[in-house]
Amino acid sequence: MDNLGIVLAVIGAALAALLAGIGSAKGVGIVGEAAAGVVSVDPSKFSKVLILQLLPGTQGLYGLLTAIILLSRIGLIGGSAADLTTAQGLQFLVASLPIAVVGLISGIVQGKTAAAGVGITAKKPDHNGKGIIMAAMVETYAILALLISILIIYNIAL
């Protein structure tokens, strides 16, 4: 197959956006359920639980960012498509995996942690920050995965 390289690279971009996006959607959904429960009883806590709900949404953004950078690097965005070998395409596919996989898992896990944080906000609103910090700790690993994905994408020789 002549275009296998570019196909593999595009699959990589799609996976980064897709899996990280699924992780975020699930994570935000879990926190949203818990937050809606709290708000249905005490609407004054809306702004506090909203912050927690936003936290798992970042993985989707990281996946999107990785996909855009990858597509830009292979010339599908803002230029002409590069003539990639199969090995190069495979390198782009592998480069997208850290944020794709870590984004999926960390999005869900962060959602669970943030939902537990919603419980803190419901019972002790003054300690809301602690729930945010705990959920934000999960973010570290999504950021590390994003960093590695971008570093690999920029360092693949074309």
Partner: peptide, 16 residues
């Protein structure tokens, strides 16, 4: 593993 997240959120608020 995240069953009844909504109900638990409401219950936590009601516990106050």
């Amino acid at each position: 593993g995240t069953k009844y997240a909504n109900a638990v959120g409401a219950v936590r608020a009601m516990e106050n």
